[in-house]
């Protein structure tokens, strides 16, 4: 299901959902929920966006049914803890690689995924100041190291 151009801001969250479908369905579910909520605010009027959001909603309802015995889906407080722990685990892995001077694609992706999952946390309410700082740092690091590797420079 291609993400319409108007909903470009959530395309990476939707892709993260697809990547976690089997690995961690709870992560996949909340990434889609974020895509749904944010997508509705961005554009739910044009036919291509309505079609996309309707399909996304079908997917969410099906997932909720399939995962009805999972506390992280039925209780949002547990879901919040699950996503936050997962995001911080990604962040810590990338940060540890960074501090050890090991710069590679996987650590860039971990920084970036951590920042996307910190976006996803906003479905549960306002982000904490700490999470806002982590998100900013992770996104900046991902961009900075990506550009260094692309230009053949050593990250400082």
């Amino acid at each position: 299901m291609a993400v319409p151009a108007q909903l470009k801001a959530v395309q990476h969250h939707i892709r993260t959902a697809q990547e976690h479908e089997k690995r961690d369905p709870v992560v996949a579910y909340y990434c889609r929920l974020y895509g749904m909520q944010t997508g509705m605010k961005l554009d739910s009027k044009t036919p291509e966006c309505r079609k996309f959001l309707m399909k996304l909603m079908d997917q969410l309802e099906m997932m909720k049914k399939d995962l009805s015995d999972n506390d992280s889906i039925t209780q949002e407080l547990v879901g919040h803890a699950h996503i936050e722990n997962y995001a911080l685990k990604m962040f810590l892995y990338a940060d540890n690689e960074d501090r050890s001077g090991r710069f590679h694609k996987n650590m860039i992706k971990s920084f970036y995924t951590a920042s996307l999952l910190l976006d996803v946390l906003s479905v549960f309410g306002e982000l904490s100041e700490e999470n806002i700082q982590h998100r900013k740092y992770a996104r900046w690091k991902a961009t900075y190291i990506h550009n260094c590797l692309k230009n053949g420079e050593a990250p400082q």
Binding site: L33, M36, Q37, M40, S44, K45, R50, L53, M54, M57, L60, E61, K64, E76
Partner: peptide
């Protein structure tokens, strides 16, 4: 035709909002 398509769009938007609220156990 314009007003019909506008009301279809707003009905679908309402449907999405209602389904979202149900999904999140808000109704």
């Amino acid at each position: 035709i314009g007003s019909i398509s506008t009301s279809v769009a707003s009905a679908e938007q309402d449907e999405l909002s209602q389904r979202l609220a149900r999904l999140r156990d808000q109704i």
